[in-house]
Amino acid sequence: MSRILEGKNAVITGARQGIGRAIAEAYAENGCGLWVCSRTDDEAFRKDMKELSEKYGVDIRTIFFDMMKEDEIKSAAKEILGSKIPVDILVNNAGATCRSLFQMTSMKTLRDVFEVDFFGPYLFTQLLLRAMMKCSSASIINIVSTAGLDANAGRSAYGSAKAALACFTRVLSAELGTKNIRVNAIAPGVTQTSLLTYDEEQLAEIVADSAQGVIGQPEDIAGSALFLASDSSSFVTGQIIRVDGFVL
């Protein structure tokens, strides 16, 4: 089977685990060189990425920065741009979750969530865009959330930040369409990752309301991210794709 991202390079934030890690593997398996980003440096992550690199025969570079720190985001972008490696694909996956009722959500919490889920990806995209504009075609994929599309209690901060990122996706797609840069978002439903904040009873209710009767796995999201990164989606832009097993 051909590797559909052969010759391309992607930057993936939040690649240490969960959805980001699954996307990194899906891309590597399909021949894509990677910049994998994580907040903190540790040997386990480097080792994991080294093994992925050897397994699929692609270049994988690790880079560490905090989405809440503008200077670190700029330094990371400088390192990526300075490498002169083309950036064909950007996946803004890093995120912070929050579940608390409106009256229990402090302004600090709200600002922190927006820093990681919206302002950070906004700046990072702004910085990397100059490299993406040099590619004959490019794809930006923002990982939003069904929480940003649906009105669920307890999601005023997280849902609002993800809604902002979804709106940004559509605006950017309008601005960049003629430059052959596609911008799409994936809105995962409840997905089995370390960010999952539901207890067993709540999960059982969600599963009961799902057409497929299961919660999503990171690999389910990675499949859609692979499609949006590839030329198979060359006429798809400005879309927010729900990947949630159809919650009824």
């Binding site: 700029k74 300075g82 865009l129 100059r130 490299a131 040099k134």
Partner: peptide
């Protein structure tokens, strides 16, 4: 969009990275 192309062209011409 032209502005971003211009920034990229200036950066390439002088091998610099312009701050936001």
């Amino acid at each position: 969009v032209g502005h971003m192309q211009l920034i990229a062209a200036i950066e390439d011409a002088f091998d610099i990275m312009i701050d936001t």
